[in-house]
């Protein structure tokens, strides 16, 4: 039983890491039906920004939690600027084009950003300080759940709830839903569609930035490829849960995390990807739009 619980928490850790990145993916998809492949790169840039801020502030002698707070704020601002600019440069001009064009543009953006960081920073792995530290009250449970994991789980859950409420109950959220349903109609009714889409990218990028800093605290190292690798898993999670659905991204990520963890624990980690993607195929056979995805309604 204890072994089961340990594996459960292992799965929860992994799942929440995937979820934090998947939320941004699924949100952008929900509004403009674009799979933003560069999302992983924004996550990576968030981690690098956090590292630079942490380096400077550590040298100035600030306490760890203050550094974490500042690093998060700076990463969020910086990545939002990236997300906003990226949308204006790479996606907005293609808004009227067929669906493949922005997809290719997104892949191009992803490769561009990765190589840009490679040239501007380094291709090597860099150590990332654990800004979250180890909480005292977690001391007795450290063997099953680390402090950084706890923070990641809580932040992911909070982000999911906040996003859901925002989209359901605020004016801007309603504009977002309207844009998602029918962009032209929303525009005719006075919704500023450009502003809505920009805001979507800003929120998505902010989530990626928070994810970048927190997850780097857990893994302890970053390099230019982390975004691509995390992006693939997060994208899988988003599809599993139903791309476009915010609770779906969380659920999909947890299902993926648990599958990997239990497959490792009871069978073999050699096959964790086989089980994870086998499950994806199975779910998509029986529920083509994902666990919580809505089947697309035919417009007649």
């Amino acid at each position: 039983m204890e072994y089961f619980l340990e594996l459960f928490f292992g799965g929860l850790t992994r799942g929440s890491i995937y979820a934090l990145i998947a939320l941004g993916y699924t949100m952008v998809y929900g509004i403009i039906e674009l799979i933003n492949f560069a999302h992983g790169e924004i996550y990576m840039i968030g981690a690098f920004t956090g590292l630079i801020v942490a380096g400077v502030l550590t040298a100035m002698g600030f306490p760890a939690l203050a550094i974490l707070a500042v690093a998060l704020v700076v990463a969020v601002v910086y990545c939002s600027a990236y997300g906003y600019t990226m949308e204006k440069i790479a996606y907005k001009p293609l808004r009227g084009a067929n669906r493949l064009s922005p997809l290719i543009s997104a892949i191009g953006m992803s490769i561009f950003l990765q190589n840009y960081v490679l040239l501007a920073q380094t291709p090597n792995f860099l150590p990332f300080p654990n800004l979250i530290g180890e909480f005292e009250f977690m001391e007795d449970y450290a063997h099953i759940l680390g402090s950084a994991n706890l923070v990641i789980i809580l932040v992911t859950a909070a982000a999911m709830v906040a996003l859901t409420l925002f989209i359901k109950y605020t004016r801007m959220g309603r504009a977002m839903r309207a844009t998602a349903q029918n962009r032209k109609m929303a525009m005719l009714l006075g919704v500023n569609v450009d502003a809505v889409i920009s805001l979507t990218f800003i929120i998505g990028s902010s989530l990626a930035a928070i994810g970048g800093v927190l997850i780097a605290c857990h893994t302890g190292q970053i390099n230019i490829t982390i975004g691509f690798i995390a992006g693939i898993k997060a994208f899988t999670a988003a599809v599993l849960g139903g791309v476009g659905s915010i609770p779906g991204a969380m659920l999909g990520a947890l299902v993926l995390g648990f599958t990997e963890s239990f497959a490792t624990g009871y069978i073999s980690s050699d096959y964790e990807d086989v089980f994870a993607f086998g499950l994806l195929v199975l779910i998509l056979i029986f529920r083509p739009s994902g666990l919580l995805g809505k089947a697309p309604t035919q417009k007649v």
């Binding site: 292992g10 890491i17 239990f262």
Partner: peptide
């Protein structure tokens, strides 16, 4: 005797298995 992905974010499950 197991293989783990070097790019995985988290090794909790395999670590518990080592202990087990």
């Amino acid at each position: 005797f197991e293989g783990i992905g070097a790019d995985q974010v988290d090794y909790a499950a395999v670590i518990q298995k080592i202990k087990q």
